[in-house]
Design a binder for these strands. Structure first.
Lengths: 234, 234
DNA sequence: TTGAAATATTAACATTATTTTAACAATAAA
DNA sequence: TTTATTGTTAAAATAATGTTAATATTTCAA
């Protein structure tokens, strides 16, 4: 990795901007900031940051609009910063092409983890021309996409077609939240009914098969109101 | 190696039969004898010896015919005993599937060496299977791609053209799920009808031939909705 | 060439696996 | 607490696969 990774922080509140800025700088990132959407869009195109941290609650411009604009010409990872409880916003942001989100209030560790995740994904997408290798691994869980085989501690786990598809989607984008809607459309097609009951049943079955304690899942985490997230390898 | 190895001696001359029999018994082998071809064939199928010692000059039946008959259903090592000078016979016997030969007169040491060799080959073929390029092995199942020969526990399994192709495809990519579509296109060409009925019938026939319990297959596993998978060697 | 044997294909039905629905329990958010 | 969301279970409905037998088709030897 040559040089520091550059993070653009788009955030109107000075205190939060400073907090993020110093946290990231202290951890070896180069940081640039923008105090509103207008300035943010300009800086994305001029600075070409490696990651964008975007507060959804900006004064001058709807955050969704920024995501949309950027996605018209760039795939730079966008991590959305949203106020707690605004679940609908998270879903919408992810749908529009945001890569991940953190909820206020958040700690440095969480923020750094998300940024690392975004950078890693971005890197592999650039390196391998997507198609992230033939296997996924997280803890004792292993997925061999070539063989279409899932193992936990070496034991072969049998998954049905839909179960496998769900796990495959989640692990392909591990570390990122995949919205219910996205997963459902991916498996049952665009005309599937909006309800996520089937997905819930499938998830229960998957967890029964891959988790030590399905009531306290370690691999697939629920993000209430948003979707599921596969943990990245530790 | 549990218990003694069993050697079947097919030989019409009493003196030679007794000589061989006592030599082998003295060296820890279990020996059964047959005095003609007819009796020999019966004993191979009933006693399942580990090695067959076959005199080519039998009164009732051409030795070549015995080799041929046995090779239709078993790979048990056959050591041919031939009169000196019958070079053409040796070649023909080996072509038909004999494993080795000794020429009369022979000594105990030579005979024992040949038997040990045959047992060793047989054992490694059974144990490590593969090792030799061009073969596949999983459990008791062995496939010799060069000879186009499939055996289960040493017994030769006759597969039809299509059955063999299916097994060959699956074992070539063992451990990986091969989709119905791929297999069908591979065998019946790109314009085969999409239905997999034929494949299902073929699979039923294959399993009846190679599986201990076709209702609970150990070698070829079905991945519902996807395809079939040949188990990797255990 | 013919006819028996082997093989391939088709069709009908049995069996099994998966998906979906529904009712309710547990948990998290407001 | 109250409500919304998610988890869980079991039964019903659906779909996929296995199995058998009858019917073509091919192969091969006389």
């Amino acid at each position: 990795m040559s040089g520091k990774n550059c993070i653009l922080v788009i955030e109107d509140e000075v205190s939060i901007r400073n907090f993020i800025s110093s946290s990231l700088t202290a951890n070896g990132y180069k940081v640039v900031t923008a105090k509103d959407g207008q300035q943010g869009l300009v800086m994305i195109s001029s600075y070409r940051p490696d990651v964008v941290l975007l507060d959804l609650g900006l004064p001058d411009m709807d955050g969704m609009h920024i995501i949309q604009s950027v996605r018209e010409w760039s795939l730079v990872p966008i991590i959305v910063v949203s106020a707690n409880g605004m679940q609908a916003d998270k879903v919408k942001a992810l749908d529009l092409g945001a890569d991940d989100y953190v909820t206020k209030p958040f700690g440095t560790e969480e923020l750094l983890a998300r940024i690392r995740g975004a950078l890693r994904h971005w890197q592999t997408r650039k390196d391998t021309g997507m198609s992230e290798l033939g296997t996924f691994k997280s803890g004792d869980l292993m997925i061999d996409f070539d063989k279409r085989r899932v193992t936990v501690r070496g034991e072969i786990i049998h998954l049905t077609q839909n179960e496998y598809k769900i796990v495959a989607i989640l692990s392909k984008y591990s570390g990122r939240v995949m919205t219910y809607d996205y997963i459902i459309k991916e498996i049952w097609g665009p005309y599937a009914k909006g309800d996520n009951q089937i997905l819930r049943v499938n998830m229960a079955n998957i967890r029964r098969k891959i988790e030590d304690n399905p009531a306290d899942p370690q691999y697939i985490i629920t993000e209430v109101g948003v979707g599921y997230r596969m943990c990245e390898d530790k």
